[in-house]
């Protein structure tokens, strides 16, 4: 295996993480908004379902998604009817699976961030003539920058390290669904330790650098008592 192909899984992991982050910032913000500002029927059920991927073994979630997105699953059939191709073992398929798997990592920080916003300022925005949609972009989003940043970082890093769900839904198709964590597993299984070292090191360094930037950005917030 050449160096170029070693780094291919990293590139797929990066693309997957970026796509999942973009989708989840929008979907997570929508769900968090509903949970914080609207009456949601059967709220405990909805909140439990959103948080389920945190506690569920990835293989269990992956199995359900495999059934749902497969040719006999409702979602898989609908997709095939619309686009004429299967979702399984495709990049789009693993993006959808990742979105479900990382959903709580987007919703929880956004929900906490929205809940911290003083409701009066949102009411003031409505009183001043803004619809809930406009108030969301002009008041909620600018006052939740930290929440959006936290959600983006958590989702991105969580997706970069995804394994079980991706393996179940996407398999390990080189150049399509073989992400870094799967490539590392396969390298170790076939005793290609050099490849495993390279991929692991790049993944570890990238994750550490990401967190370092975040912690440096937050420096001073918890500097302890002074004086």
């Amino acid at each position: 295996m050449g160096t170029g192909s070693i780094l291919d899984p990293l590139w797929i992991s990066f693309k997957l993480a970026a796509a999942t982050t973009v989708v989840l910032l929008a979907a997570g913000a929508f769900l968090a908004y509903l949970l914080v500002y609207r009456k949601v029927p059967a709220r405990p059920v909805v909140e439990s379902l959103i948080s389920l991927p945190i506690v569920l073994p990835p293989t269990v979630l992956g199995f359900y998604l495999l059934i749902l997105m497969g040719p006999k699953g409702a979602f898989g059939r609908a997709w095939e009817g619309l686009f004429g191709s299967s979702l399984l073992f495709t990049f789009t398929g693993i993006v959808i699976a990742s979105v479900f798997h990382s959903l709580p990592f987007a919703v929880q920080p956004l929900k906490a961030s929205f809940a911290r916003i003083d409701r009066r300022i949102l009411e003031n925005a409505h009183v001043l003539g803004l619809s809930p949609f406009k108030a969301f972009f002009r008041v909620v989003v600018p006052n939740s920058v930290a929440g959006f940043a936290a959600a983006a970082i958590l989702v991105f890093l969580h997706t970069m390290g995804e394994f079980g769900v991706i393996l179940m839904v996407g398999g390990s198709v080189p150049g399509k669904t073989k992400v870094a964590s799967i490539a590392i597993f396969e390298a170790v299984e076939s005793l290609r330790y050099r490849d495993a070292w390279i991929l692991s090191l790049v993944l570890a360094l990238a994750s550490f650098s990401f967190l370092l930037v975040v912690n440096a950005w937050n420096k001073g917030e918890y500097d302890g008592l002074k004086g």
Binding site: R120, I121, E123, N124, A125, V127, L128, G129, N143
Partner: peptide
Amino acid sequence: RLAMVFQDFALFPH
């Protein structure tokens, strides 16, 4: 088309 002065100001902190 009204405006309200809130007791606790309700200004936009950002």
